[in-house]
Design a protein around this nucleic acid. Structure first.
Lengths: 202, 202
DNA sequence: GACGATACGGAGACAGTCTCCGCTTTGTCA
DNA sequence: TGACAAAGCGGAGACTGTCTCCGTATCGTC
């Protein structure tokens, strides 16, 4: 018993099967080659025509959005875990930003379309981003109330910084320690240390 | 008297003229449309064939590098001015990073090829970047010696952060204040305030 | 002015995105 | 179970952009 479409009719099984299969293939493909690999190549690898690919996902961004959907649930689970288990609000924010940073590294090149999505409001990725900004707002607000984050920092900027850091990271790979350096730099940016100690750098 | 080429022969005047003209046109074109506009469109606008464009500049990156050459001199002049006029080493570093941030905003989309250039060593942009990292090192070193910058910050990371901030800025344009927020966040990241005051935010 | 070297132009090879439409497959209903 | 309409499929090809190749035009020299 498949779900019914918007009208009474059933969703055709071949359609459903294709959709799932394309997603599987695209997931692997993007993971291997980064998000800018050829769309037609994905279609070919999935064994479907280009038309089929584009009927399911009208462009690269839509495909990406569908792929991220699954990961979103993971990230939301992680958010809940942090809420539950982390009592220190600064650490909670830091952990959330870490989780975000990891999520955005799911595929090489992902930060770019996300950044673009932030400038639009039509994009399927925009809503996702908005949701995560809201969550950031929540963690940030708590940290600010507790005096663990500068009061002038804004959630949207933190989100953008996380994106930007992830973006920069893919240039830093040659120099491994840069990755950590950038994260530390960002944390040091928003964090308001009560006792004047240097953040991070374990 | 035109300069001589590597062999004894003079450089052909039409070649020289074309080169200059293409650069003028490309400068305006990139300024208008960002760096991802069509190369053939530049050739057409310059009134030359595609072949001529590509003989002078084998790819977009080479064209970009040639365009930035001129601006480099500006930036270097600014560097010298800061060296001369700014006695506070933290402010000097801040000003230098501001200047860098501005330079990198010369054309929309510029941060991306610069980031890529940092991962390579063949690119014509790489050398330029390296030079600026070295300058950053100088300013940062001074600030660190004076206790105005965290000792764990590294010049390369600061350069990358500047790039990343500029990159993020073009998503922040819709929300004007984000641009400033990001810069403040970054400065707050490297700066080690002696008296515990909040940085920037005048 | 003639000649060889050099540069020019633009047609076209190639690669990518995305659309369109004839054909096949599917679900439904008798 | 068979027949019919609706839905989906495939891939040729339109379109856009990058970059190359080579016949032709231009330049500098002697």
């Amino acid at each position: 018993m498949s779900e019914a479409g918007t009208d009474g009719r059933r969703v055709r099984t071949d359609k459903q099967r294709n959709r799932v299969h394309i997603l599987e293939v695209a997931e692997q493909f993007f993971a291997e080659q980064g998000i800018s690999g050829s769309m037609d190549a994905i279609a070919k690898r999935a064994g479907v025509g280009a038309g089929t690919l584009y009927r399911h996902f009208p462009n690269r961004e839509a495909l990406l959005a569908a792929l991220l959907q699954a990961r979103n649930e993971e990230l939301e689970a992680r958010r809940d875990a942090i809420r539950r288990e982390e009592s220190d609000s600064s650490d909670a924010l830091a952990q959330w930003l870490d989780a975000l940073g990891e999520w955005v590294t799911a595929f090489d090149g992902l930060p770019e379309p996300l950044r673009v999505a932030l400038t639009e409001d039509t994009s399927p990725l925009t809503i996702t981003c908005q949701g995560f900004i809201t969550t950031t707002e929540e963690f940030l607000g708590a940290a600010q109330r507790d005096g663990g984050a500068h009061p002038w920092v804004r959630a949207r900027d933190l989100f953008l910084s996380t994106l930007a850091t992830a973006w920069a990271r893919s240039a830093a790979l040659a120099d491994e320690s840069s990755s950590e350096g950038l994260s530390t730099l960002m944390r040091s940016g928003w964090e308001k240390s009560v006792d004047g100690t240097t953040p991070g750098a374990s």
